[in-house]
Nucleic acid binder design. Structure first.
Lengths: 337, 337
DNA sequence: TTGAAAGCGATACCAG
DNA sequence: CTGGTATCGCTTTCAA
């Protein structure tokens, strides 16, 4: 049978109350007995039943993380950041995956609620809004990572507009005019819509017209990148000289498609990817990218939550700086003779 | 305030006992009232406090998953399998990450224990043995994934010996004699040691001697692959014609190092990687690999656990088939004129 | 079929 | 500084 608080108390000839106080470092007790109790607990192999503790104290040190089952592995980076912040604060991470199935979503959501998590970190993509609303009603902090959900939830993310601006600015400086946005450009999810909108807006801001813009794809996959130039556009007469990939993998697909068809990157097509994971460095040619600081996003998000009880309660948005990393996938058209 | 069982019971003019029975589909009750209660609970926004439920019933539907913080992303694949099996069985996954820090390990371990998990799935690599032992003492099933830990714990994994045999067999058939094992070849962890030992044993079994073998590296990183041929060996006079990479990333590093130095793959070096994730298909040249079925490992592991109460209790080892996928990174020496 | 009541293991308030 | 005890929300006999 499992060792309980009472067992330790009996063995120590103390009350459960005292032992509890000692083991949680709360309230008053003498260091002498405390030492004795701690050793005893250790020796007896006692460990707290967190379920009971949470039930009794009506709080929980657990926070939930919702990760899309199909993610572009930037999730791992974010989780690393969360892990760091979490482990040093004594909180515990309840990571749940989410697919597109409604029933499953409901189940996951139930899990989170029924475990009394204090906060839920939503990792990008299409989190059902009924889920967010219910969480909010239950006074559970919802923090959106790598995406702005709506103005009721806090978010820690890269500045999408700035990112896109940096990219287009760079591309235009390099002499590009006809530019494509490839990857997830659909209108139905918040993040893809944001990117699409920003792309169009910023192209205009750079004096480019609709004729200079090209949009392709509805997801962040390798295949989308690959197929864009092999099926939808004529690879021998691409109407654009540069492409912005909404994820590293998309850019990789783009690059491979070119290579596989005897074309060269960046000579025949310049590519800039969004994300900047290890992959972009491993690719040949190395991919120019705007790198998001995912671990930092995780770390900051956790801190935001930890500090939230004390100070204000209003939803906040924190932007984590991104960095343009110039590598070998963008051609300088101006240098061309 | 949160809606509790009692609230629902009051609203329904029933006792908590009855409502509990209905909501958990246990015991006897009339379908008529059941329907009423279920609707009421739904409308009131009731959801079970799983902590209280677990505490009361002294069991838990949660299982833990321990993932090395630095993983070769095959972990995601395994988790997908686990998730599938878990979501359809009503269990809940408690995913925890683990780094090398002893204190953190202890903390993670505490989390798992204190949440009363029914089983812990250990994802490869160096899981501290004190952790395993304590878990076992607490009668918590420990199932090792993608690695054999010891004969006290069940395991679901690929057949390491068979994998290595397939690779060497293939390489020898293609005319290779001098072969290197590159990646994690250290003696101190179970999995790397297994691979190292199998490599040597199977090289011998193929009539090759120690002079034909080369070992390099102590981890599964890209850098290890890259550095092996650029620093430790003379890239212009490699003593081996083929290399077995202990992970895809290692193979990728190897390939890039060759490419970056004007060498060709497979002409100047043949490469076979172990794992076979998407990466090997994206690489150029595409990497020949022995592919492990990670999602299946996850699925089977969960099923193993689910069926374990009913039948026997002995530790079992289940091997999930692997597949050699021939792509473009191995040269056929025999075909050479 | 339904209800009363005894826990589950820990916390925290209130006395002593 | 220490102990008694109500309580957290739910499950589970045992009676009714």
């Amino acid at each position: 049978m499992k060792v309980t608080l009472k067992d330790v108390a009996d063995a120590a000839n103390l009350s459960v109350a005292s032992v509890s106080r000692i083991l949680t470092n709360r309230g008053r007790y003498s260091e002498v007995t405390a030492k004795r109790v701690r050793e005893l607990a250790q020796k007896m192999g006692y460990y707290k039943n967190q379920n009971a503790a949470d039930l009794s104290s009506k709080k929980s040190r657990a926070v939930g993380v919702v990760v899309p089952l199909i993610h572009t592995n930037f999730a791992d980076e974010v989780i690393k950041g969360l892990y760091e912040a979490t482990i040093s604060s004594g909180y515990e991470l309840l990571i749940t995956y989410l697919d597109e199935n409604e029933d499953h979503q409901y189940q996951v959501f139930q899990t989170l609620l029924s475990r009394q998590v204090g906060a839920v970190f939503m990792l990008s993509l299409d989190i059902p809004s009924w889920m967010v609303n219910t969480l909010l009603e239950e006074k559970i902090s919802v923090i959106s990572l790598t995406a702005l959900l709506n103005d009721q939830v806090s978010a820690v993310t890269s500045d999408e507009s700035e990112m896109m601006n940096t990219i287009i600015d760079y591309l235009v400086t390099m002499g590009h005019k006809n530019i494509a946005l490839i990857g997830d450009t659909k209108l139905t999810t918040i993040i893809s819509n944001t990117r699409r909108t920003n792309f169009i807006k910023l192209m205009h801001a750079h004096g480019l017209t609709d004729d200079n813009m090209f949009l392709y794809g509805t997801d962040h996959t390798y295949e989308t990148g690959y197929n864009s130039v092999t099926t939808d556009y004529d690879i021998n007469h691409l109407p654009f000289t540069a492409a912005v990939a909404t994820a590293d993998l998309v850019g990789q697909g783009l690059a491979n498609a070119m290579l596989d068809h005897g074309k060269k990157v960046p000579d025949d097509l310049s590519i800039v990817t969004i994300d900047g994971l290890q992959q972009t460095e491993i690719a040949r040619p190395k991919l120019t990218t705007i790198q998001q600081n995912f671990p930092e996003i995780g770390r900051v998000a956790m801190q935001l939550f930890l500090n939230s009880d004390s100070s204000n309660k209003d939803p906040q948005v924190i932007y984590i700086p991104t960095e343009l990393i110039q590598r070998d996938s963008v051609l300088n058209l101006n240098a061309k003779i």
